[in-house]
Amino acid sequence: MGAVSVNDTTAADTAQRVAIITGANGGIGSAIVTAYRSLGYAVTATSRRMPESEDPQVLAVSDDLVASGAGERIVRVAMERFGRIDTVVNSAGVYIGKPFTDYTDKDFDLIVGVNLRGFFNIARSAIGAMLSRGEGGGHLVNISTSLVDQPNSQVPCALTSLTKGGLNAVTKELAIEFAGHGIRVNTVSLGVVRTPMNPETTPELVARHPLGRMEEVDDVVQAIVYLEQASFVTGEILHVDGGQSAGR
């Protein structure tokens, strides 16, 4: 048998990789779409109201992740367009901060629906698509908050902690469940991110981060790109919060 050249590649090695980004119309989500395109990925970008893209390698899908069958629909159109799914970044999320006894049933349905049902819908279908590939492999990234690990008496947000804490837990479970298939599952746990929806920098917000500044969208993107490229990292809750989770 002849020697195998180190330059030999398989079709799986050379195929363009494909990412699904949820919440892609938000400040963080849109930046994640740009980052994955810079990595050479084709992207299915989805949100409840997703504007069309002029980039032929970005498929815009408007859908509500909470709705029955939404995950299946998004995965199906991504597969029809690009033929495979390698990564899902679960960027869609809802935060409502208020005292626990002030939460309403409507608040509960919204937060649990987006943060947990939305995750379940897209992750279940996407992992199924990853498993359908003979070579296996894939990556799922969630976005959580360091308030799960380091509650703040000045920031009551029990339903956020309830749901994002669930994502932290399922990250580790799914990482172990699918490790044998080469599918990695990780989470980035954030502080207060300055976005178009949260543009204000105040002393109180800065003080939540021991490093002394608010988190920027680029901080989030860098962490996700690191996890994407760190092929031996799975089951990780990566705190990107300026030291917030370490204490004050």
Results as ranks from 00 to 15, higher is better:
S68T: 15
P56F: 09
V66H: 00
R49K: 09
R248L: 13
M214T: 03
P210R: 06
I96P: 07
R73M: 05
L110F: 08
T46A: 08
D105K: 00
L211A: 05
G29Y: 04
P56C: 14
Q16V: 12
V148C: 03
G97Q: 10
V148A: 10
M130C: 06
S146G: 12
F100R: 09
A169G: 12
D63Q: 09
V193A: 09
A3N: 06
A78F: 06
E200D: 14
G113K: 01
G69D: 12
D109N: 11
T195F: 05
T145Q: 04
P196E: 11
V88E: 01
E52S: 04
Q229V: 13
R248W: 12
G118K: 00
S125W: 03
L238D: 12
R49P: 12
G71L: 07
Q229D: 15
P210D: 13
V206G: 01
D241P: 07
R48E: 11
K164D: 07
F100M: 12
L131F: 02
E200I: 14
F232I: 07
Y41C: 10
Q229G: 14
P203T: 14
E200W: 03
L59A: 13
C157V: 12
E200R: 04
V141L: 10
G247C: 12
L131S: 04
D64M: 05
A3I: 14
V155R: 01
A42I: 01
T101I: 06
N142M: 02
R213G: 15
T9P: 00
A92M: 08
G128W: 01
D86I: 02
V193G: 12
T201Y: 01
C157R: 05
G180S: 11
I32S: 08
S153N: 08
V112W: 01
F100K: 07
L65N: 08
P199I: 11
T104F: 00
F178P: 09
D149F: 00
Y226I: 14
V61L: 07
T9V: 13
H139C: 15
H239F: 12
V75I: 03
A45Q: 14
D149R: 01
M130R: 01
G83K: 04
G136R: 02
Q150Y: 02
N168H: 01
A175T: 09
S38Y: 06
G180A: 10
R133P: 01
R49V: 15
K98G: 15
L110R: 10
A129D: 13
E173R: 01
S161W: 02
I20M: 03
I21V: 14
T187A: 10
V94N: 07
D102P: 06
E177W: 01
I85A: 03
G134H: 14
M50K: 04
N152I: 15
A223S: 08
T171M: 04
E236C: 05
T195M: 07
A3K: 04
